[in-house]
Design a binder for these strands. Structure first.
Lengths: 218, 218
DNA sequence: CTATCGTTTAACAATTTTGTTAAACATAAA
DNA sequence: TTTATGTTTAACAAAATTGTTAAACGATAG
């Protein structure tokens, strides 16, 4: 029936567009620039996605859902609370290393088009709801000073996301190479855990959980 | 010599452009949109600022310098360390309420044009240097668990800035009104202090320092 | 009053960017 | 080989956006 030329033209466009938007931070990347990056004719972008806007929407929704699925899988697991959070940090930081500008993109897009915030960020179950019970237990047992679930989650994602967003700025400010910055972000995983729980990250947990690859969701 | 029609046309343009860029988050605001907002002819933007690019650069540099000056004044003051930090949080959050999208703007601009990061973010004295000595003392005296000055500062600004950046998202996600969100951010000042020092924000300090107005730098 | 000079405007030009379309292309089935 | 179908391309059209300019305007000095 259909021709399968190099078959995945649509996938290539999506991949390269994601790279431009979410990895390189070229929020204003032109359809031409996207086409160039993907090595295809610009008209194909309209053929597959109708408009630049729709391409963006598709990519955003996909990336957000992917990230949310990963995060939610951890938070709604049966693991002990602190292991959950440790894993959560790991996942968010790793995902942030993959798409450093995703958060920035969301913020900019929702500022320009407030209706989009609903389709993107409205969710039946909030992160804060997923950990509320755990958190209340921690607090009740005196292992954690009182804090609302909302503030707790926002502290967590602030500490994870901001340094990824501000990569260029921070890297330049402290004169770090790319490798040095990567190392810095790895170190931050422990720092974040510590800032949240006011105690060092237990070594054992992390070794066991996932050594190199973050491949759970597949 | 010169005509002083309504005199401050240039200032009005700057003010309204700042509002569009940094307050409303319209990162891609058109020269026409800026002109409309300022109630002037579009050509005046070129008359006063030569190009859209130069207008943006001017605004960015001004806002960054203003913010940095405020922050630096506190960090290099002779106040006790924890009061410094408390004040710092206050100033950053207040400035963030004024220009919620400034950070977002910096990130996007420096991603698109990496050379700008130098003129914007390169500074003789880094924030981390300003508090390094204090921090070492705190750690040496056992009042704070070991942490590098860089991580400490980044924790601090992450906790302050992120919730401002993500205003639209967070507000929608938790179904907060504007006033509720403002209240939420006010609460965060204490939450942040607590996350940093693992102890409640001392009440006394805050009452004394600056009651309503953040007017020190003038 | 009028000449001058900085300011403002409308109209224009150039460029960039998006979106459309008809034709060319390639593969698979008939 | 021919036909049909989905893919790709080049060329075109339309819109949006930036930047320029000559003329109009208005206050002030002379």
């Amino acid at each position: 029936m259909s021709t399968i030329p190099e078959a995945q033209t649509e996938a290539v466009i999506k991949e390269k567009a994601k790279s431009l938007f979410f990895q390189k931070g070229f929020l204003n990347a032109t359809t031409q620039e996207i086409a160039d990056e993907a090595g295809v004719n610009r008209a194909l972008i309209h053929y597959y996605f109708r408009s630049r806007e729709q391409l963006m929407d598709t990519l955003l929704e996909e990336a957000v859902n992917e990230k949310r699925a990963k995060a939610r899988a951890v938070l709604s697991s049966a693991l002990p609370f602190r292991e959950k959070i440790s894993l959560f940090i790991d996942i968010v930081v790793e995902y942030g290393l993959k798409y450093p500008y995703l958060e920035n993109f969301i913020i900019t897009e929702t500022a320009r088009n407030p209706e989009k915030v609903k389709v993107l960020c409205q969710t039946k179950v909030k992160s804060s709801d997923l950990i509320r019970k755990d958190l209340e237990e921690e607090i009740a047992s005196g292992r954690l000073l009182p804090i609302t679930a909302e503030h707790f989650v926002i502290n967590l994602i602030s500490l994870c996301n901001y340094p990824l967003l501000a990569k260029t700025v921070l890297q330049n400010m402290h004169g770090m190479s790319d490798t040095a910055y990567r190392k810095f972000l790895q170190d931050r995983k422990e720092i974040i855990y510590h800032a949240i729980f006011h105690e060092p990250l237990p070594r054992i947990t992390r070794k066991e959980e996932h050594h190199h690859h973050p491949k759970p969701a597949k």
